[in-house]
Design a protein around this nucleic acid. Structure first.
Lengths: 227, 227
DNA sequence: AAGATAATATGATATAAATCATATTGTAAA
DNA sequence: TTTACAATATGATTTATATCATATTATCTT
């Protein structure tokens, strides 16, 4: 329960707090555990805390017209839900764990007070948000102007990039349901399954039980980026 | 050519600079004029300056697979191209004037040096980027999960919101080509035209010569937000 | 004022992808 | 180890929207 002993401390944003405030933050820090699928926060609800992921994998999603869209992921060491704190706004996404997840929670004012005068922290947040924006801009254009097969190819590459690919087996380290992949790629689940079958039939991926093997990453890149 | 005399000075980001640096910034400021349609910067190119719009309207677009996507707009008083400066990155969008435009340009280091130690400036940029992210998140979900007519309805509302609606005539203050509207809504130009005709036939808008009259804004909102 | 040109409009057709239907398989629980 | 259920798979059909084709109109030029 102490930040100093935490394995994420090297990359943790709390490390940017001024010494005294760091101690203070630790004092007010609470850990929460969430089962896979159990929301950490919902879009539209008030943002009450500054949260970082201690352990686990989380998808940040929005629901629209009975559809789900995954906007980004977060994993151990990543903060989540900070955009709404910064603009004093409600959450614009829901955070749903893909695995059992532990979260470090700090009262929002501990964060906001520090943000007021700690330029290293403010700059770090600026970098984070600017990177999110860069990715969302790119994602938006990709999803709106590329065909389903290209979106699925990119979804697989993203999963491999973020969560890793087993060097030996070439299997995705984290297993995603077809439904989750369809929510990354903005495609119906059935279409997603069809696209995966198509990629399999071309020898680019393999579907083993319910997990995915990336046989030909180059080819996936070619497909996802082709005009 | 002096910031003090500028009509945008009240909202201009340069006003957040420390006194000395403000004087310095003004010294290095250059105005550039761009004709309608002539790019201010292109996606993929290095970001060399901190830019604000003195006069005019600019679309921030990305080209993908021979298609154009408008991600946001900027008008007098707005900075543009700052995301890439912040992450020391190439521009991720192109900036194309929709009207003849004048830009204030500051060497990037004048901006970045100040950003290093001016927390008011850093915080302002954080607010700007966080707002951009909020809008892009929402746009992404809207474009990927709503039908064309809903996207067109929203595009019209956005134009009205950002550039205003003449109180008396209910005409959009800024005239956009059907092509530009199609690039906001991620729809083909022909489909855009059909959707506008449909909205006209329902008495929600009117098409007078080449400009658009918003007759029933409520209805547009209903359409754009319906499931 | 007439003509040229680009923008707008509309019809016909093609196509990608959603939806609906049903079958099969993997996994977890009894 | 069998059963049950959810996840995956695949086929048939529908639908939205892009594309292609052509016509009409507005605006600008001379």
């Amino acid at each position: 329960m102490n930040c100093k002993a935490c394995q994420n401390s090297a990359s943790c944003i709390i490390a940017l707090f001024n010494k005294n405030e760091q101690e203070n933050a630790m004092k007010y820090m609470t850990n929460y555990k969430y089962k896979k699928g159990k929301a950490i926060f919902y879009e539209g609800l008030d943002s009450e805390s500054f949260l970082t992921i201690k352990k686990g994998i989380v998808k940040l999603v929005r629901n629209e017209s009975n559809n789900c869209q995954i906007l980004r992921f977060a994993k151990a060491g990543d903060p989540i839900g900070y955009r709404s704190l910064i603009t004093h706004d409600v959450h614009s996404t829901s955070a749903i764990p893909l695995t059992d997840t532990t979260v470090c929670s700090f009262p929002k004012n501990v964060f906001l007070d520090e943000l007021n005068y700690n330029i290293a922290l403010t700059d770090k947040m600026l970098q984070l948000v600017a990177n999110d924006l860069k990715h969302t801009d790119a994602l938006l254009v990709h999803l709106t102007h590329k065909t389903a097969i290209k979106r699925i190819a990119k979804a697989l590459l993203n999963i491999a990039d973020i969560f890793g690919l087993n060097e030996e087996t070439k299997m995705l380290n984290t297993s995603f349901s077809r439904y989750d992949i369809s929510c990354i790629a903005s495609v119906s689940t059935e279409s997603c399954i069809r696209m995966l079958s198509e990629l399999k039939s071309k020898g680019i991926i393999d579907l083993i039980n319910r997990s995915i093997k990336i046989i030909d990453k180059k080819q996936l890149e070619l497909i996802s980026s082709s005009e």
